[in-house]
Simulated scan of single mutants.
Amino acid sequence: MIVHRWTALGDDPLEEGRRFGAAWAPQLSGALASYLELFQQSGVTSAVATEVAEGCRDATEQHAPAVAAEFRGMAEGSGLSVQDVYLLASRTEVLARMTPSMECSTIVHIPADGSAPRTLQTWDWHETLSNETVVRRFRAHSGARVATFCEFGQPAKIGVNDRGLGVHFNILHHRSDGSRAGVPVHVVARMILEDARTVEEAVSIAESVPLAASSVFTVAAFHDGVAQAAAIEVSPAGVAVIEAEPGQTIAHTNHFLDHGLAAGEFSPYETTSVPRYECLVDAADLARIPGHRERALAFGALRDAPISVRPRPDQPAHLRWETKLTVALDVADGAVEFAVGAPADTADADWVRVGAV
C-alpha cells in the first residue's frame, strides 16, 4: 500500500477541496470505481447507494457546512459529481445497509505518572481496496491544525490535532444501522479533530448529530499533565462512552462494549473481533511502552497474534480482509506515526512520522 501526503495551503474549504480534487483526480476516480464494485458484490443496489449518499449529503450540509464546501470543491477539481464524492465519504453508511465489514484493533494506555496517552491501532480493510491512501495536513476553520490518515474521498479517519487530541477509528454494526439518514461517521471524525480539545468535547460533538451507521471513536487527549482516553461508541440508536482512568488501558475492536448498545449487535457472519479484543487485553502491558515504534514492534512480536490480519484465500474477494497499516498517535506533539502493514511486519517496514504542524 502507498501512503501519499498532502498539505493544504490555506483554510478556505472550497478552494482546498478544488486543489485536492485536481491533484488526486485519478486516485479519487479509482476509489469510486472500486467502491461501486464492492457495493455491487455486497448486494447494495445503485438505488440504495444513491439514497444513502443523498441523505448523508443533506445531513453534512446541515451539520458540517465547511466539510460540505470541501466536498463541492473536490468534485469541481476532480471532475467527479458531488454525488460521487458523497458515495466515497459515506461508504460506511452504504455498506451498513447490506454487508457489514470488519476492521481494526485499537489500544490506548493512560499512564499514571502524568505523561501522554500511548496508543496503537491496526487498520484492517479489504485486500483489493484502498491500496493508495493519504495523510492530509490542513488548518481547520477553528484554527486547529490537523493531520489525518484516510482513504481517498474521506474527510478524516485516524488523526491528531495540535490541541492535544487524537482519534482512533473502528467500525461497529448495530441493528439500527440504515434506519435513518445521518452525518457520515468519517465526517464526525473530522468534526472532532477540528473542534475538540478534550474527551468531553469529543463526546458532545458525537452526541450532537444524527447518524446512519455505527462506529467507535477512541479518543485520547493530553493537557497540562492530564491524560484522558475514552471509547465513544456511536450508532443511530444512541451514543455510549467507556472511559479509562490514569493507570488503565482501554482496548476496542469491532463489537460494542456498552451493554445497552451490545444488545443490538449485528453481524451476519463469523468475525474475529472477540479474539482480537482478547489478544489486546491479554497483552495490555505492551501498551505501556513509551516509544511508538517500539510499542508496535512489541505487539508485532506476539506469536500468531490475530491482530495481524492476513487475507483468507478461501473467502470471496469482498470478504477478504488484511491489516494494511499500523499506526500510533503522538497527542502531546500532534503527530501521526505509522508503518505500512501489520504489527508483525513493522520490523521490516519504514516507520513514518507526520506532524500536524
Rank of each mutant, 00 (worst) to 15 (best):
D258H: 08
C279L: 11
G238L: 03
G247H: 01
A262K: 01
E278R: 15
S267C: 09
H292D: 01
Q248T: 05
D258M: 06
R276H: 08
L257I: 07
D224V: 09
A283Q: 15
A237M: 03
D224C: 01
A305Y: 01
A244F: 00
Q228E: 15
F266Y: 15
F222H: 08
V239S: 03
Q248M: 11
N254V: 05
G225L: 12
G300T: 12
I232E: 00
H223Q: 14
V239H: 02
P268I: 10
V234L: 05
H292E: 10
P268E: 10
E245T: 10
V226K: 06
P236Q: 08
S235I: 07
L257H: 06
L297P: 00
P268F: 14
H252T: 00
I232H: 01
T272L: 11
E278A: 15
T218Y: 07
I232V: 15
A220C: 11
D285P: 00
E265L: 05
T249L: 02
R288K: 15
A240F: 02
A230H: 05
A240S: 10
A284I: 01
A240W: 00
T253E: 02
A263C: 07
P268Q: 13
D304G: 06
L302C: 08
N254F: 00
A287G: 03
F217P: 05
Y277A: 05
N254K: 05
E243P: 06
A229D: 01
T218S: 07
Y277P: 05
L297Q: 15
A231Y: 05
P290T: 12
A296F: 04
F266T: 04
N254M: 07
E278K: 12
A229N: 07
Y269G: 04
T253Y: 05
P290D: 15
A231I: 04
P290W: 11
E245W: 06
T271K: 09
P268D: 09
P268M: 12
F256H: 09
A220T: 02
A298T: 12
P236V: 06
E278S: 13
V281H: 03
T218F: 02
E233T: 02
V281I: 14
V234I: 15
G225H: 10
G264Q: 07
R295H: 10
L280Q: 08
E233H: 08
E265N: 00
Q228P: 09
T271V: 04
H252G: 02
G291S: 14
E233R: 06
G291T: 13
G264R: 01
P290E: 15
G260K: 06
A244I: 01
H223S: 14
F217K: 09
L286D: 02
L297T: 14
N254C: 11
G247C: 07
L261M: 08
G264S: 08
A237F: 05
P275Y: 08
C279P: 02
D258C: 00
A283T: 13
A298L: 11
A220K: 02
T272P: 01
R288H: 09
E294L: 14
G291W: 13
R288S: 13
H259F: 09
A283K: 09
G260H: 12
R288A: 15
D282I: 06
A305V: 00
I242R: 11
H259V: 10
E270Y: 12
F266N: 05
V219G: 02
